[in-house]
Nucleic acid binder design. Structure first.
Lengths: 190, 190
DNA sequence: CTCATTCTAGAATGATCATTTTACATTGGG
DNA sequence: CCCAATGTAAAATGATCATTCTAGAATGAG
């Protein structure tokens, strides 16, 4: 019945995702997205409904392929502070979170803000996934009444790093900031 | 010779600035800007050349009227850690840096990234002003070989706060994070 | 007062936008 | 092998975009 796509959905979503990361939603046209994905505009509309549908699909793909993947890579099941620290340090590796792409979660948060928008669902899910991963490690490793404080502190650090990378600022001091942040947390280990 | 503007330039730039803060550059049209400022599109083009000219002027206005003003208010001449801490805490006050506006510096950094753009000059100046203000206090009060580290740490915190506010996330734990950050710095006071 | 100058207003223009339509290609079931 | 279903392609459409044009209003110098 349902015949398979003639295009590879993961590849197309990856291309669209990176295009949106580079230019945002308002800053890119269907023609640009057509060039980026190799699909004609007709195929895009057939497959995703409209530009918003493609954005939603690309955002979902980003949460799975980038955020969840990163969390599984660095935290996985044996979650400890070292893994979380490595996750933060990995943000500073040249690719693929480099400045000319940017984090779609951060970019969407800034582009759309808190008002209801095409990004609302993705933002809610993305922040929930990220915060849950951080909280899981902090709660298990440190616990206590200050868990919320540590989680927010790390979330602030995470978003701050992505903004500075995106802006092309000098981030050579960031690894030292991350290390000192986690050193501080390790002092609280039971 | 040069006759005065019939409109109040500061008011118009303030309105345009807030419109850009809400919607970004790509996300707003000349018609929207015309509605926001009360100027017709003809007057906008006459006064500012084009949409990019108005954006540049609004960005410059933001740097002066918001960033420099905030720095002068909280740091001024008698710069100490308490003043800098108050500056950070002031970001969390409901108005005027509230989420539905956002910080034009952060928003522009995320929208345009590091590539040359209409925002490049404003971004360079805005980050320079902000970083210099932080560095001045840290250097004078604490000094030592870790100044860069402290400056970047505070810059990360600053940008992280603005992203979370913009995203409408729960920032109720942020004041405690700021206080603990500055408590840590005060331990380094000579 | 008057005129050259500068500003403003609003309609006009061509480009680009998202989207739809139309025609065609590809596919697997009968 | 053929056909109904679905995917793709590319041109067409109307809306909206940034920008310009044209006409008229406000201003200060002489």
């Amino acid at each position: 019945m349902t015949r398979p796509r003639l295009f590879d959905e993961a590849t197309v979503l990856g291309d669209a995702m990176n295009a949106f990361r580079r230019a945002g939603f308002a800053g890119i046209s269907i023609k640009d997205l057509s060039d980026a994905t190799g699909l004609t505009s007709g195929s895009i509309y057939n497959a995703f409904g409209d530009k918003e549908g493609l954005y939603r699909a690309a955002f979902g793909h980003y949460i799975d392929a980038v955020i969840r993947h990163r969390i599984e890579t660095y935290i996985g099941e044996a979650s400890d502070l070292d893994g979380l620290e490595q996750l933060f340090l990995s943000l500073l590796l040249p690719a693929p979170e480099s400045g000319d792409l940017g984090c779609l979660l951060t970019n969407a948060a800034v582009e759309f803000g808190a008002q209801p928008s095409v990004a609302s669902e993705g933002l809610a899910e993305g922040f929930a996934v990220l915060e849950a991963a951080i909280r899981q490690v902090v709660e298990r490793q440190i616990g206590g009444g200050q868990v919320d404080l540590h989680v927010v502190r790390l979330l602030l650090l995470y978003q701050g790093i992505l903004v500075l990378i995106r802006a092309g600022r000098d981030v050579s001091a960031c690894p030292a900031v991350i290390r000192s942040e986690f050193e501080q947390l390790r002092k609280l280990l039971p």
